[in-house]
Design a protein around this nucleic acid. Structure first.
Ligand SMILES: NC(=O)c1ccc[n+]([C@@H]2O[C@H](COP(=O)([O-])OP(=O)(O)OC[C@H]3O[C@@H](n4cnc5c(N)ncnc54)[C@H](O)[C@@H]3O)[C@@H](O)[C@H]2O)c1
Ligand SMILES: NC(=O)c1ccc[n+]([C@@H]2O[C@H](COP(=O)([O-])OP(=O)(O)OC[C@H]3O[C@@H](n4cnc5c(N)ncnc54)[C@H](O)[C@@H]3O)[C@@H](O)[C@H]2O)c1
Lengths: 212, 212
DNA sequence: AACATATTGTGAATAAATTCACAGCGTTAA
DNA sequence: TTAACGCTGTGAATTTATTCACAATATGTT
């Protein structure tokens, strides 16, 4: 079963769409509908669903509940997967606020910051520790992924510590390339690059449109 | 000249890397070095650079300054391109704080929120307006891209307003699919999907590693 | 001036991703 | 019963993206 990064991204998106579709009372969906909701094509949707081994009915399309379950079985861990967050500034606070309680199999189980004012504060049920506790808390809580929301200057050090503590995947919001062992999965999310991209395509649209 | 979305993303990343490479005193770079900094391959780097019409020297590789300029000429607007931000919560504040002043050709020129407490506050030199001013301020300031950082429930309405005001590109942080005219470029950035993706690959790494 | 060297630029080959197109199927209607 | 329908599942075709591989080249060296 060959599943690329893009495949996984689409499946995650499908699941979110399917859940909200189910929440408005639907019980099934056709590849055409899902494609249109996901800005994709029916053939792409069918291929993706095929790749996880689920199949629908030619008459009713896909059963929402079963499809959601299949995707979840494919994508999720059986157990709860715990997440650490480092950096409790504006971004960190926004993240914890938005994330916590939204996904059944994922939870932010520990927060770290180096600012003494923040240490020991409790947010959404999880206490903020000082960075020195990273090596202790992460293995103890069995956390294997982390979100970095500290300024660029501190990110590499934090990442090194996290890896030392046993983290296997990092979602990095700091604008630096982290240098880490090859068996650590890193996803970078930089807002500036994203705005630049939007700026490029927005401009492209406007200049193309005016050349009629 | 066929430049795909991925192309643009890589060029933006190269530029950032090149700038920081220049800042540590270097004057030139080889495709091999840039590839390793960008987690890419030398051939990919050369192809990408070829696609913008720049060429280097077989002996000294690429001249940093000239390459940065070529990429910028290709990617950037000649004029300043203005950005609107809607939603001045934790996320919005983090965004403005991080973004403002970082890119020479881009600036957040107006901020909107519907909370009366926030209206008329000034942050990083830009005043926060009420949503009602969107239709007035955006055309007046000639803003053509926007960042949405409001809760999911308000995002579609805000997006509709923005489009009506003349926005051509949107960076959307709210977890909803925006339904908009086809000539509007939308980039969605959802943290939950990103964490889920990291969770998947982190797990995959750990389980694969243990099957030796 | 001739040679050695290391890297670029790029056509060609390969690999990966997407789309096409249609057989097969369960359901409904007559 | 039979026919018609509209959708899925998927092999094959196509398109897009990446990598290979090597001639061309600018410079340093003798
Ligand atoms: N990728 C994005 O989309 C995006 C958006 C906004 C900000 N950012 C980045 O995220 C960073 C944080 O943004 P913010 O708005 O929350 O900033 P902030 O200043 O509000 O918060 C930073 C927090 O990190 C803590 N911190 C600093 N160094 C630390 C370290 N070494 N270890 C642990 N904690 C540390 C500080 O005490 C503070 O609480 C910014 O510096 C910026 O680089 C990224
Ligand atoms: N994509 C991501 O990575 C990510 C991360 C965190 C949060 N979020 C999303 O972003 C939203 C904002 O996060 P936050 O932490 O800043 O929340 P917040 O509650 O701190 O701020 C929300 C702000 O939006 C304003 N607002 C609400 N509705 C509005 C409307 N219709 N028009 C204008 N302003 C409006 C509020 O007054 C408030 O200032 C969250 O609801 C969440 O959906 C996304």
């Amino acid at each position: 079963m060959k599943t690329s990064e893009k495949n996984i991204e689409r499946l995650l998106l499908y699941r979110r769409i399917l859940i909200s579709f189910k929440n408005i009372g639907k019980t099934n969906i056709y590849s055409k509908q899902l494609a249109s909701l996901a800005d994709s094509t029916p053939a792409q949707v069918r291929r993706d669903i095929m790749s996880i081994g689920y199949s629908g009915s030619p008459v009713h399309g896909y059963d929402l509940e079963k499809l959601i379950d299949s995707i979840s079985e494919f994508l999720d861990s059986n157990n709860l997967q715990k997440v650490a967050l480092v950096g409790l500034g504006h971004l960190g606070r926004s993240i914890i606020d938005y994330f916590q309680g939204r996904r059944p199999k994922l939870m932010i189980a520990a927060v770290f910051d180096r600012d003494p004012d923040k240490i020991d504060r409790v947010m959404h049920g999880c206490r903020c520790y000082s960075n020195e506790k990273i090596l202790k808390v992460i293995p103890k809580e069995n956390i294997n992924i982390a979100i970095i929301a500290v300024p660029a200057s501190g990110a590499q050090d934090v990442a090194d510590l996290l890896v030392q503590a046993g983290i296997k995947g990092i979602l990095n919001y700091a604008p630096v390339k982290l240098t880490l062992p090859p068996d650590i999965y890193v996803e970078n999310r930089d807002m500036i690059l994203a705005v630049e991209k939007v700026a490029y395509f927005a401009r492209k649209i406007t200049t193309e449109g005016s050349s009629t």
